[in-house]
């Protein structure tokens, strides 16, 4: 059992539980879908550990998960941009492009390795999307209290995670080749992703708490 309780899983489960408490009664379907997404994250992580423990390669489970990850984050960005009159075509176009690259990489590798190029490409797109969100905030004439603005904290988590994972993604093949023979939990890739996961889920948990208080405040002022 302790095998399944790593820094990663603890961060993910904590975030999932906070999301469950804070977003369960949220009226927005987008915010509510974070609960389902985080549940999927926990399942994926547990499945990944299970396969690793049984000396089976777990890249496939993370490969499938990557599609849902992209869908969730992209939909979130689309809903942010929607307020600034961006069209749904943008989301469809991006998802189509992602699928093409994702499937092509899987096809060329004969479904035998994790699509690291797609992950890097996706990271770059999310980093650009996060920076664009900041640009929109700066350009927006309305003032928002950013320290308690949930969307801002979700994007902060995304930026830290995807920008921080760029180095690992770029050197992915090299790192995987050289990890053979050492304990997985001691590899630099594992340590970095632990740190990034903690940062991502801490930001998201805080965003969920802000969202919860925002909802409570708006319902009590009515």
């Amino acid at each position: 059992m302790p095998l399944y309780l790593s820094i990663n899983t603890i961060a993910e489960i904590t975030c999932f539980l906070i999301g469950l408490i804070c977003l369960f009664q949220d009226k927005s379907l987008l915010w509510k879908s974070f609960i389902a997404y985080l549940f999927l994250v926990c399942i994926t992580e547990t499945g990944g550990i299970y396969l690793r423990v049984h000396h089976t390669r777990n890249y496939l489970i993370y490969t499938i998960y990557m599609f849902f990850e992209c869908l969730m984050v992209s939909t979130f960005f689309y809903y942010i941009y929607k307020r600034y009159h961006h069209k749904i075509k943008l989301l469809y176009s991006w998802m189509a492009l992602f699928l093409v690259i994702y499937l092509m990489e899987l096809y060329t590798s004969h479904f035998k390795s994790f699509p690291s190029f797609t992950a890097t490409f996706m990271s770059v797109v999310f980093v650009v999307a996060s920076l664009y969100f900041y640009l929109l905030i700066i350009k927006d004439e309305r003032f928002r209290q950013l320290s308690t603005y949930p969307t801002f904290w979700i994007v902060n988590g995304i930026l830290l995670y995807y920008f921080g994972s760029t180095a690992c993604n770029v050197f992915y093949d090299y790192l995987v080749q050289n990890e053979n023979g050492i304990k997985a939990t001691l590899s630099i890739r594992y340590i970095i992703f632990n740190l990034l996961n903690v940062l991502l889920y801490a930001c998201w948990s805080y965003a969920f708490i802000c969202r919860y208080y925002q909802r409570k405040l708006s319902s009590s002022s009515r």
């Binding site: 930026l159 830290l160 920008f163 921080g164 050289n178 990890e179 023979g181 630099i188 970095i192």
Partner: peptide, 25 residues
């Protein structure tokens, strides 16, 4: 198995890639 230089390089790059967004935020 993994040379210290590469570990150092990746750690450094990741640190920079983490500090940069913090500054932006």
């Amino acid at each position: 198995i993994l040379s210290k230089e590469v570990i150092f390089l990746i750690t450094l790059t990741t640190s920079i890639f983490l500090i940069a967004p913090i500054f932006i935020i």
